[in-house]
Amino acid sequence: MSLDKDQVRHIATLARLNLSDDEYGESVAKLSKIVDFVDQLSQADTEGVVPMAHPLDATQRLRPDAVTETDERDRYQENAPSVTGGLYLVPKVIE
């Protein structure tokens, strides 16, 4: 199944990716190829097969709900592009 330009535009929006016009053209062609390729799966007989959740059948471990991490905010925010008073700054969200 081929994808068209509108579909790719929609996917890019969902994925929060800005693409240039050139990138759109190439994405339509290459994503269509990938989708065609994975379409082979539709031929597999999977009637009654339980979907894989974990290859070793492990289950999620639980731990007591206790505070174990130390406060490293200042150090972690050294990597942030823009902060003030311990808060991350972003462009205005509410007009």
């Binding site: 994975v38 999977t46 979907p51 894989m52």
Partner: peptide, 28 residues
């Protein structure tokens, strides 16, 4: 970008069962 978009597509409304769920079954 291609892989993010492929992943976004196979998980998006209307395609999840055909791709992701099907792949989980073949995975099994």
């Amino acid at each position: 970008k291609r892989r993010i978009m492929t992943g976004t597509y196979v998980l998006s409304a209307g395609y999840y069962d055909a791709y992701y769920l099907k792949a989980q079954q073949v995975w099994q």
